[in-house]
Design a protein around this nucleic acid. Structure first.
Lengths: 145, 145
DNA sequence: GACATTTAAATGCATTTGCATGTACATTGC
DNA sequence: GCAATGTACATGCAAATGCATTTAAATGTC
């Protein structure tokens, strides 16, 4: 295999990194402009919101959000300090905590969503056809396996 | 447009973020395991290496590497402290500095490359056909415009 | 049950990042 | 020429991150 051929994959990675960066910047800027919390908060709040009052364990979020244990622990500290979530000792496993979104947490999540969604749409919808997006998802999904 | 249709683009973004994260983690882990500097250093060193002794201005790297001004300034501090680059006052514009890679900088860059490349290949080559990679690049490129 | 091992989460400390501002030089308009 | 404005880069300080370790409880072994 020649260098020229290899380059396709290197280019794919560079383009992936730059594309990601570009989109992420726009999303974060949109949230900041709207004086809303950063994207990471949304991810957490969405997971908690989806649990429908069941309570979520921190270690579950870790794998879902691809965050390191200590990183998540401190992200939760900050979100909790802002009053958007609560930690309660888990009765069935007293080492752990159950995480619950608060009313104000749900409220801020709902404020964030349209801003977040608009930022995504502004980029993706305008530039990719639906068919292209589906193919894009299929290809990208392979990288995670 | 229905929610279901919109979801394609949201999914595209989530998959992009996760795919990027997964690849990045593998690359950074590979470099760390080999006791080599992080990926950001490689990007800088490659740019300097390509300038063929011409010297590069910091503000040029900023846009090429999509880094904030202060972030780049401090990244350069660290790389310089390790002896992998030099900053020299630019004679034609004394506000600025010209950046040069050192011998040891070029050496470390050449050590990093195979580790970096292997990490990319391990993921992309195994999972994407060449044709698929080309299409992937085309699609992603649109997002940056 | 007593002891070693594993797991969940938090935390001290060093490094890195983000934001705002500072410093020095360059450029523009008069 | 020189005051005003703009540009290149650095930096003080606060916040976030990474790494290693700690704390506490669960689980496994005998």
């Amino acid at each position: 295999m020649t260098n020229l051929d290899d380059d396709i994959y290197e280019t794919a990675w560079i383009t992936l990194a730059q594309g990601h960066q570009a989109v992420l910047d726009k999303i974060e800027n949109a949230l900041k402009s709207a004086e809303l919390p950063p994207l990471g908060w949304y991810d957490v709040l969405l997971e908690l919101s989806r649990s429908e009052g069941e309570g979520v364990r921190a270690f579950e979020l870790e794998s879902r959000l691809l965050l390191p244990q200590y990183g998540l622990s401190r992200l939760l500290d900050r979100i909790e300090k802002s009053g958007f979530l609560e930690r309660q000792v888990c009765k069935s496993d007293r080492r752990g905590k159950l995480l619950y979104i608060t009313r104000s947490g749900e409220a801020i999540r709902q404020k964030m969503w349209p801003v977040y969604q608009k930022a995504i749409m502004d980029i993706f919808e305008k530039k990719l056809s639906r068919t292209e997006a589906v193919k894009f998802i299929q290809t990208l999904s392979k990288l995670r396996v």
